[in-house]
Design a protein around this nucleic acid. Sequence first.
DNA 1: GTTAGTGCAAATCGTTTGCAATGTT
DNA 2: AACATTGCAAACGATTTGCACTAAC
Lengths: 134, 134
Amino acid sequence: MRYSKQRRLILDTVLKNKVHPSADYIYNLLKDENPELSLGTVYRNLNFLAQNNMLKKINIPNGSDRFDGTLSKHQHVICTECGKVVDICVPELAKICDTILDKTGFEVNCDSLAFEGLCAECREKLQLQIKIHA
Amino acid sequence: MRYSKQRRLILDTVLKNKVHPSADYIYNLLKDENPELSLGTVYRNLNFLAQNNMLKKINIPNGSDRFDGTLSKHQHVICTECGKVVDICVPELAKICDTILDKTGFEVNCDSLAFEGLCAECREKLQLQIKIHA
DNA sequence: GTTAGTGCAAATCGTTTGCAATGTT
DNA sequence: AACATTGCAAACGATTTGCACTAAC
């Protein structure tokens, strides 16, 4: 593995940005200072880094993939309204995964689990809208 | 809501097919007997039926969405190798969702949760391949 | 010097959409 | 008759890919 300038830049950006950035977010953040950088390179590096366990890839239903530099065992919560991604740790899942293996034969990976829901801010906003329209 | 021939056909197909079919699967299954049917109509109806709580939509990371006619509270397990989708019921998740609300302010929907992993058959196949290449 | 990595643009995949025509109520 | 729904094809957004060029080792 070679450490190109681009690869270092992209990895650093994910490690520094706690928002769980998408490829596009990273590209837009970096392109001003690095006008030669291409979006394809960002994608290629994010995938490469995820495959080599230097990043985690987070799948977002109906949205761009996001990336996470925190490698310790944890799960994610995704706001379906604003797209916010937050880290959580649910240790009880280990036991649940064992049960799933027993019952279904599936060896599931608790680490890739993502809960979908509404964050506090979006819940509040939506409540307001209901009041206005009532 | 009008009950077009196409809508009835598509809903029936999901209800009958326990494989959790995708739009494409349904389209290919039906198009021989219904050559006029279009893929766009299949998508439109699946989304319509899901919005009206007559079906559940299941998001598949790196794959087509799948649909489920079983409406009772349950979760899914997805095989990342062959794409198989299986229903499971994990009642413990209710408590976990409460904890998540407390800790993060996110109101999450345990019902939309999907575990990713390897089914028994794919685990076996992959084991074999490792042996062959060794 | 070799070959992994890049930039660019074209291609891909799953899905959605505009529009004129049709079917359902 | 009104309008929800269709078929078709074009458009879409996110991501991947082929290829000739460049940079890391």
